[in-house]
Design a protein around this nucleic acid. Structure first.
Lengths: 347, 347
DNA sequence: TGATTCAGCGCAATCGTTTGTGCAAATATA
DNA sequence: TATATTTGCACAAACGATTGCGCTGAATCA
């Protein structure tokens, strides 16, 4: 079965490709195509199930109605969630999504980004993993707007939308402190990623404000389950093990849980734990995990909105730096302690 | 910054677009381009960071090195997993993936598929949600190969790769039966989807073979958390509530768990449960959930392999119908019962 | 020296669209 | 009736690549 084209429709109806194109793009009125002609062409197109080649269209118009989404690991439920939202928001705006995965590798990130650019996507939404935004900034300057989500850079000119991670870290820690904990271990993800840094900063400031700056400590090196496991395992062997853990992501949490179970400790009676992210499974763990929930629906929607504005070229937009407030979701993984630590905290 | 094209490189080096194209595609030898010329052009391309327009390339060659992936809900961790695998396998084969989501709507499914076709993807991997494969078959006949995964149709000519769902259902049920259960509730997903049907058939046959055909029953209508919740809630109010539940997916499981907790029942002492799918979280629930694990890595890899063969046009391939064996993963959510049921089972 | 061969490259058509411009016929205006 | 306007549509040049074919000049051969 030969593919239908403007030409074939043009031949079958006897009108020129120009006219066919105009009708099918809904510009019949604008170009004064008669009603009769319009009907004939529309009918023929419908009947033969014509779909225009988006390649040709894109080539000619320089718009593909496609946006690229770069994530560092789609198998992480958090990014799968983000992808889901971005895809549906993009669809609402009439776009489809090319999804690429850097698997936390800077090299892959470049390759995939460059693939997106050759595909002439209209814009890119990225959760970057590189240490340095320059590659992304080049793409943006090259005419393909880029909006960052979740992770970003301090010194970048790119727009971004993310959780207010500092606040999240501060609130998580404060909640633990309010419950009498002082020896709080903070397990972070990739150290150079902004969410990690900011959450850690929030943790540290909260600790400081509470006069516990030297307790617990910040450990960890990436957002993997393994990292959560190892750091927890280590910390539990300290002479004065932490009474609470602040896990920076759902993956780190899982690792920590494993280590805690292996040590035959009960949550929250033996040790408390608080996490980040909002995975549906967190409610089903036993106990359900108290956490800082990120507003990912809003993040996804805002990101698409910003991107669409940039694509539409609405007056060369200012850089937007949006930090949306996270939310504390209280479940059952944090217990109140009434020991030495509390006395110490009340001095 | 103006985008680089063959033409601009051609102008800067003084060679024709033809020659530039040949060099950059690695056909320098084939067309006897001199070594010197080759070097000049390669250098210029590298320096100016040239990336060819895949639109133009695709238009001309009719190959886009892009494959479409259709899933019914990327926020379901199971499909996110599949997507992750398909993306990385596709990448190994030099392709990128356009991901579209039907959200379990037949109408969306058609729209998205048609969008993939206009994008001239080289092939499509689909987890269909429609009741009827004809639309997909048309696409396949239209020259865009389609391979189904996870869900398929009995009466289709399309190739598919999936878990041996009958066997999975049979094994899950047998395992419960072996542990003395007879009153086993089976909660299924979308009734007309083949995985659902086959798992249910496996369940029914196992029950029959064990002489318990009339116990428990098959309930449920879709793969949602809500469905699992409602059906469990209902079943627990029976005069003779089930002693075990077979949940057909990780989402149904979650719903069931919620209902069970609300009834203040303990797993596995009060009620046993077995699930399908292999989500990392299942190991971290308390107790860890015994389940039938699907070989999704193999499924993803096979699907891409089949698709690539079809795309390469290796002799108009036979239809492939692959059912890969699932695996029972024993954890702690199933207990042995030694009551009336067992006596009954041993008659 | 004249005829062959081959190395090295370019011409121009093509893929399927969009779009600025042009032009005939129909209608309105004077 | 002659002119101006409007209606309805078509021509042809792009967009950025690929590719069958052909051309030139140098080297080889007889």
């Amino acid at each position: 079965m030969k593919k239908d084209t403007l030409k074939s429709i043009s031949q079958r109806t006897g009108y020129s490709m120009t006219t066919v194109s105009r009708v099918l793009n809904g510009n019949a009125n604008k170009y004064r195509i008669s009603k009769k002609t319009t009907e004939i062409i529309t009918a023929e197109a419908r009947e033969s199930n014509f779909t225009p080649s988006l390649l040709a269209k894109g080539l000619r118009t320089n718009k593909t109605r496609t946006i690229g989404l770069l994530v560092p690991g789609i198998d992480n439920p958090y990014f799968a969630n983000i992808a889901s939202i971005v895809i549906s928001e993009a669809k609402k705006a009439g776009n489809t999504v090319v999804l690429v995965d850097s698997m936390e590798s800077e090299e892959s990130e470049r390759e995939e980004l460059s693939s997106l650019v050759s595909r002439q996507v209209d814009g890119v939404i990225a959760v970057p993993c590189g240490q340095n935004p320059s590659y992304l900034e080049n793409i943006d300057r090259g005419g393909t707007p880029v909006v960052l989500i979740d992770r970003y850079y301090d010194n970048t000119t790119l727009s971004y939308v993310c959780t207010d991670n500092y606040r999240g870290g501060y609130e998580a820690t404060s909640y633990l402190l309010q419950n009498g904990h002082a020896n709080i271990l903070c397990i972070r993800g990739v150290p150079h990623s902004t969410p990690s840094c900011e959450r850690a900063r929030g943790y540290a400031d909260a600790m400081q404000a509470h006069g516990c700056a030297n307790e617990g400590g910040i450990e960890g090196s990436d957002f993997s389950v393994r990292n959560g496991y190892l750091e927890t395992k280590l910390a539990l062997q300290r002479s004065k093990p932490p009474t609470a853990i602040f896990a920076m992501s759902n993956t780190i949490l899982l690792g920590a849980l494993k280590a805690i179970r292996e040590a035959s400790l009960q949550i929250p009676s033996d040790i408390s734990i608080i996490s980040f992210d909002n995975n549906v499974y967190l409610d089903y763990l036993d106990p359900a995990i108290t956490r800082i929930s990120q507003p990912i629906n809003e993040i996804g929607a805002m990101a698409i909105k910003l991107l669409m504005q940039r694509i539409a070229g609405d007056g060369d937009m200012q850089q937007a730096r949006l930090q949306l407030p996270p939310q504390l979701v209280v479940c059952n993984s944090v217990a109140r302690v009434r020991q030495a630590e509390e006395a110490y905290g009340n001095q």
